[in-house]
Structure formats: C-alpha cells, structure tokens
C-alpha cells in the first residue's frame, strides 16, 4: 500500500493555489513580497518561477490599493487571491473589504459578484508583538457579505482554499503562522471542502470543546491529557465561521451536555461569544449540565516578552482546567 503523503500547511496552500492556477487563467495571486522572496512565510515560494510575474503579482506596500484592486478585478471577471502579509494589516485594507467587497452585490441588487479570497496569517506566538500578532477574525465575521474561514490543518487548508476560490463571494481566509509547518496527510489531487461544514476532530462523550485555528491543536493535546484521567473529550473545529455549521455544534453539545469554547482572539467580543450564543439559543441549551466555559485571549495587545506572550492566550493547561471545571459542576 502506498504511504499516505504528508505535506505542511504551507505546502498545502501553495499546492491548492498552483493547481487552481493551472486550471483557470482567471485565478492569480497578488501581494507584498510574494515573488522571488516567496512571501513573508514562504507560502508562494517557487510560484513566480512557474507562473511568472503577470500572475504572481508582487505589489507595492499599499494594502488599501491592492485590496481594492482585487475587488475591482473580481467584479470584472477575475478570481484574485490576495496575500495580505499579516492579518493585522487588514486595518488598512478594511475599507475596500468592508465597504466595497462585502456590499457591492447587495447594494447593486444582486447584479454583481466579487469572487476574491484574502489569504492572511493571524495569531501570536512568534514574538512579533502587538502589531503583528492579532486575531481579528471576529471583525470580518461581523460583516454581512463576507465569508470567513480558519483552517487548522494542512488537509483542511487545501480543501477550504479550493472552495473559497470557487465561491462567488469575498472570502477572508485566516491562516495561522504557527501552523505553517504542521503536517498531515493531504491528497495530491485537488479537492474541495464545502464552506460551512464543521469537523469533529476527535469524538468523545463527556465534554464538547469547540476550538478554532491553532486552538484545535491545543484542544486535542488537552484531550489526550484528559484521557489519562478517563475524561472523554470531543473536539469540534467549525473550520468556517461564516457560514457557521450550527447543526454539528448543537448535536455535539446535545450529546455531551457540556461545552468549552476556545479561541485565541481577545475573549471580549470574540467569535467564541457567537458560538456560545448559538448554543444558548438552540435546543442544546436544555441539554447543558454545566455553565458554558469560554476561553479567549486576555484583553491586552500581544506583548513581546515570550512568557507574557504565551500568557496572553489560552494554553493547554487552561483547557484541561476548563474541562475539569465543567465536569466538576453538578
């Protein structure tokens, strides 16, 4: 039997882009330093050699212009993928994304479509401090007209990116810097994972942990530790925040009766609050045996010092403790 091929998250994204670019001339990539440099995180390495500078477009440092340029190109028949070097810089691109990309179709009475993808790395853990470490996905999830994706594995990244590029709407595709080098099995051929399908990363019966992006891995690690204490944790990864697969979340909580939600973004106003609301407003509410626990980042800009930086966002022991807390409640 052939060995299952494993590639990194970064390679999976590159492979998806390359395969889609081979299939369609409408797909192209724009971004800062994505040419011979290969992108700040090496995601586009080698692509300019294959596709040339017409389709791997190295841009000036002009986030507003390149975001708007993607919107304009998408509006007129292209399918641009914009690599926004750090997701923090979405602040500069936000006008074009929020006031233009998200709303054009609706404002024009359904006459237009804006099929573009903004790929952008978020998250802390690299010591890049407050302006290069944020998790601002809740901002984008708040905007009608945008779809928001947060893949946690190489497999999901490839399939979700395919779905995002095929989608006729603007999609914000949040990658995580610390996931770029993580590996898993990824099929060579192109495949699509529908937007709006959560994935149960680990089945369990005692507690549901809903986690996003890098927190999926921390939740899985916590689950392995808790298993030693005989606690059976179910880990659910929504994978896309918009659209959100409410059904899978509700079913899981109905099964376990306990819920912990973990995300890296600042807890206050973070997307985890939305997940909690979905459960609180659903039939699963009746099945809850303990108050919901929500773990998120502290309400601080990400600090530089490595110990403080770790302290700013949930870690494995925090998840272990939270799960035990919900189980202790009776």
């Amino acid at each position: 039997m052939a060995v299952m091929r494993e590639i990194t998250y970064q390679e999976a994204i590159r492979e998806a882009m390359s395969q889609m670019m081979r299939e369609s001339d409408d797909v192209f990539v724009m971004g800062e330093d994505i040419g011979v440099y290969g992108g700040a995180f090496g995601v586009t390495r080698g692509m300019i050699e294959e596709f040339g500078s017409e389709r791997i477009r190295n841009t000036p440092i002009s986030e507003s212009a390149i975001a708007g340029c993607a919107v304009g190109a998408a509006l007129t028949g292209m399918r641009p993928i914009l690599e926004l070097q750090f997701s923090d810089f979405i602040t500069i691109a936000t006008d074009q994304i929020v006031n233009q990309a998200a709303k054009l179709r609706y404002m024009f009475g359904g006459k237009a479509k804006v099929p573009m993808v903004v790929r952008t790395p978020g998250g802390s853990g690299t010591g890049a401090a407050a302006q290069h470490s944020q998790s601002l996905e809740a901002w984008m999830a708040h905007i009608p007209g945008l779809k928001v994706v947060q893949p946690s594995t190489a497999y999901d990244a490839k399939g979700l990116l395919k779905a995002a590029v095929d989608d006729d709407n603007p999609v914000i595709f949040y990658e995580h810097k610390l996931l770029y080098r993580t590996k898993c099995h990824v099929p060579e051929s192109l495949y699509s994972i529908p937007l709006g399908q959560a994935d149960v990363k680990r089945e369990g019966k005692d507690v549901t942990v809903v986690a996003t992006s890098i927190m999926v891995h921390k939740a899985l690690e916590a689950a392995r530790l808790l298993e030693q204490d005989g606690i059976d944790v179910e880990v659910v990864d929504p994978r896309t925040l918009v659209p959100l697969d409410e059904e899978t979340l509700v079913q899981s909580v109905k099964k376990t009766g306990r819920l912990v939600v973990v995300y890296e973004a600042v807890k206050r106003g973070g997307f985890g609050a939305e997940i909690v609301s979905v459960i609180a407003e659903s039939e699963a509410f009746d099945y809850l045996d303990a108050p919901i626990v929500r773990l998120g980042g502290l309400p601080v800009p990400i600090p530089y010092n490595p110990e403080l930086e770790k302290h700013a966002v949930p870690q494995v022991p925090d998840i272990v403790e939270a799960v035990k807390r919900t189980l202790a409640y009776s």
Binding site: A128, A129, A130, Q131, H132, P301, P303, Y304, N305, L308
Partner: peptide, 8 residues
Amino acid sequence: KGKGGSMH
C-alpha cells in the same frame, strides 16, 4: 518594559 520589542 519588555512589552514592545525591537519594532516598538
């Protein structure tokens, strides 16, 4: 105070 680093 160790919160900014090189870039800040």
